[in-house]
Simulated scan of single mutants.
Amino acid sequence: MKRAIAINDFDSLAKEAHHIKGASANVGVEGMQYNAQKLEEMSSHQQLEGGIEIVSALETSLSRIQAWLKEI
């Protein structure tokens, strides 16, 4: 996703964001779903300002989930 943002590849960003949005919705991770939806909407409007920060938030969420899974 960071690479897609760096090269203005709106299609790839939209596809990846859509995938993450659906997967996070399936497991009830609403924060990730919301951020992925924002990225998907941004890419459809070809507007990427703040995109890297949203990707970073997704990475943080994923790291927290991975840490939680290791604990159980």
Rank of each mutant, 00 (worst) to 15 (best):
I52A: 04
S61W: 08
I5D: 04
I54F: 00
G31W: 07
V29S: 12
E49H: 07
A67K: 00
E41C: 05
Y34Q: 11
E53M: 03
H45R: 15
V55G: 03
L69M: 10
G22D: 03
E53G: 13
A4N: 04
L39R: 08
A17E: 11
H18Y: 14
D9C: 04
K21L: 09
L48E: 04
A25F: 15
M42Q: 03
T60L: 14
I5W: 02
S56D: 15
V29G: 08
A36F: 07
K21V: 06
L39I: 03
Q46Y: 01
V55H: 00
A23D: 04
A23H: 09
A17K: 15
V55K: 03
G50T: 01
E30Y: 04
E49A: 02
L69G: 00
M32H: 07
K38H: 11
M1E: 01
S61F: 04
L39T: 02
T60S: 13
E59F: 04
S24N: 09
V55Y: 02
I7Q: 07
A57S: 10
G28H: 13
A57I: 07
R3G: 05
K15R: 15
G50W: 12
R3M: 11
R3D: 09
S12Y: 12
S61N: 05
Q66G: 05
E16F: 12
E30P: 02
I20F: 11
L58C: 06
V29T: 12
E41R: 01
H19V: 14
I5P: 02
I72P: 02
L62V: 00
E40P: 01
Q37W: 13
A67C: 01
R64L: 13
K70T: 03
V55N: 06
W68C: 10
I72Q: 05
D11K: 15
S44T: 09
I72S: 02
E71K: 13
I54P: 01
E49W: 00
A25H: 14
G50L: 02
H19N: 12
G22T: 07
G50N: 03
Q33Y: 10
E40H: 01
I7D: 00
I54G: 00
V29E: 08
K21F: 12
M1S: 09
S44A: 09
D11W: 08
V55Q: 01
W68L: 14
D11E: 15
S24W: 13
A4G: 01
D9R: 03
L58K: 07
K15P: 00
G51E: 03
S56L: 13
A67M: 01
S63I: 14
F10G: 00
R64A: 13
G28F: 13
M1Q: 07
A17R: 15
L13D: 01
A23L: 15
I20W: 10
N8C: 05
A67H: 02
L48V: 05
S44L: 10
H18M: 11
I7C: 07
G51N: 02
I7M: 08
D9Y: 06
E59N: 04
N26L: 14
L58R: 05
I65D: 00
F10P: 00
V29I: 15
L69R: 10
E53H: 01
E30S: 14
V29R: 10
S12C: 08
V29Q: 12
Y34D: 07
R3L: 10
S61Q: 06
E30D: 10
I7T: 09
I20A: 07
K15C: 06
M42V: 00
A14M: 15
Q47L: 08
F10W: 14
A17N: 09
E53F: 02
L39M: 06
I7N: 06
S44Y: 06
T60V: 11
M42A: 03
